[in-house]
Design a binder for these strands. Structure first.
Length: 483
RNA sequence: GGGUGCGUAAUUCAGAGGUUUAGAAUACGAAACUUUUAAUUUCGGAGUCGUGGGUUCGAAUCCCACCGCACCUACCA
């Protein structure tokens, strides 16, 4: 019922004119001789180049026009004049900002010294039917930036840089681990039981098998099966899915790096974590000190390592030997109403509320009370502590690691406790695998999206995920229909 | 789930203490211009002020509901 806006109408009219003129649009491959950047960097007066890209600006001068052509490498100016293109000038006059254009021409420098292509021949590769966002403020509306990421990428030049850095980081992680003889593996994302973490899963259904399947919340139990199978050093770098709330730090699907190493323990994984993150900082940023607002994060190793109890004593200033830890908590204003008066729960509450936000530069917190982490191996000689660490940076958890539990008896008891009465929820095959004997092992998980937030200075996880989860777009009007 | 804030042209933003026809810039159309580069000059078109109700002589503006988004908070490895 509504008419599309007049700019779309005008562009459609231009498209029709081009068609009427017999111009072939939306055609096939284009053989470029250079990228825009190469054309500028390798400038040679009079040298012919064939370039292609999106028109980002047009400056008309009657029977001549200057424009900016942009491809993935950068921008180059082109210049077309009626003398040089003859009657095809009419075709040029139907160009719009946003059109995809292939140009053939000779390089020259304008009187201000800018490298420019003097167009001899050209081809409209694709006509743009919708106007681009405003040229110097770019696209600001965050909803539109996430929803229409292509527009964000076209109009905000720094966005591509974030995702290029992310891609480079992923590639560096692989080469770092491959170099150390870790084997990259792929385990099921559709699992008949969603194990390895406690989170609400997404459910789907397999028609042919007639069973419900869960999108994995963690690859952990499959990776450990591979440790049983003798693959000693493995990692998986891929998506996990958790059916929980969205926030600045949570997206329903997120990228996780999990690494397992047989015969290692959490100390080995701690060193590996430190080495990996320092490696990434050096390769990606060429520095180990990052500023975030008024805070400075110092990645220079060795990183601070505090036991859970030390952290609470030193950072929260709590007397952890106190008779009444509850009183201590209340003294520093921590609400423990949900802690069921359990000492470890209260300590955990103090840790999360008071200690964690103060962990700015990378800090390993080690040796958690066993009761807080049933899935890890008790510390030898101190069964009340778990061989586990978490890495915190800027108050956010970045990594989590354990000396893995490999006792099938204890594992089975843990599963039974978690499953309650529903014994069908127990991954008996995993217990069976452990019964065949699993080497001691260190296991490490690193949240890649949060790590990328650090490495790009992003304030929201949505700034490091190309297409973050949003509520599906509503059918509002013909605005949404194809132009 | 709870709280706070925001939603005005294709885009970036003004306007909010109630008053003629809701402004600006970019973008778009017309005219001039064959070395401009945020091109310039002149003219023009473009908006159901998120949606729906209410108060009022009169609402973009005040009130209510809904929709969408953001932030905080809660839940959650």
């Amino acid at each position: 019922m509504e008419t599309p806006n007049d700019q779309i109408m005008q562009r459609k009219e231009k498209l029709q004119k081009l068609i009427d003129m017999g111009v072939e649009l939306y055609s096939g491959s284009v053989n470029r001789s250079h990228s825009c950047k190469e054309a500028v960097d390798q400038f040679e007066e009079g040298h012919e180049v064939t370039l292609a890209g999106r028109i980002k600006a047009l400056r008309w001068h009657g029977k001549a026009v200057f424009g900016d052509l942009e491809d993935a490498s950068g921008k180059v100016q082109f210049y077309a004049k009626k003398d040089a293109v003859g009657e095809r000038f009419a075709e040029l006059s139907l160009l719009d900002i946003g059109d995809i254009l292939c140009i053939v021409g000779d390089l020259f420098r304008t009187r201000t010294g800018e490298v420019t292509v003097l167009i001899k021949d050209f081809k409209i590769v694709s006509k743009s039917l919708r106007p681009l966002p405003e040229k110097w403020h770019g696209l600001k509306d965050v909803e539109m930036r996430y929803r229409y990421r292509y527009l964000d990428l076209i109009s905000n030049s720094d966005v591509a840089a974030v995702f290029k850095r992310r891609s480079r980081a992923i590639s560096l992680i692989r080469s770092f681990l491959d170099e150390k003889d870790f084997l990259e593996v792929e385990t099921p994302m559709m699992q008949s039981m969603a194990g390895g973490a406690t989170a609400r899963p997404f459910v789907t259904h397999h028609q042919a098998l007639g069973v419900d399947l869960y999108l994995r919340i963690a690859p952990e139990l499959y990776l450990k099966r591979l440790i049983v199978g003798g693959l000693e050093k493995i990692y998986e770098l891929n998506r996990n899915f958790r059916n929980e709330g969205l926030s600045r730090f949570h997206n329903p699907e997120f990228t996780m790096l999990e690494i397992y190493q047989a015969y290692a323990d959490y100390n080995v994984m701690m060193n590996l974590t430190e080495e990996l993150v320092v490696f990434l900082c050096e390769k990606l940023l060429d520095k180990l000190e990052l500023g975030f607002g008024d805070k400075t994060v110092e990645f220079k190793p060795p990183w601070k390592r505090l036991t859970f109890h030390e952290a609470i004593r030193e950072i929260a200033g709590v007397d952890i030997d106190s008779e009444s830890i509850q009183e201590e908590a209340e003294r520093i204003g921590v609400d423990c109403s949900d802690c069921e008066s359990k000492r470890d729960n209260i300590l955990n509450e103090i840790f999360e509320k008071v200690v964690q936000p103060k962990l700015i530069s990378p800090t390993f917190i080690i040796d958690y009370p066993s009761s807080l982490c049933p899935l890890s191996r008790p510390k030898s000689g101190q069964p009340e502590l778990a061989e586990r660490f978490e890495l915190f940076v800027l108050g956010q958890e970045i990594a989590n690691a354990y000396s893995e539990l490999n006792d099938p008896g204890i594992q089975y008891e843990m599963f039974k406790k978690q499953a309650g009465l529903d014994l069908k929820k127990i991954d008996v095959d995993y217990v069976r695998a452990l019964e065949h004997g699993m080497p001691s092992a260190g296991g490490l998980g690193i949240g890649i999206d949060r790590l990328m937030m650090l490495l790009t200075g992003a304030a929201s996880i949505r700034d490091v995920i190309l297409f973050p989860q949003l509520r599906p777009e509503q059918e509002k009007s013909s605005e949404n229909e194809p132009a």
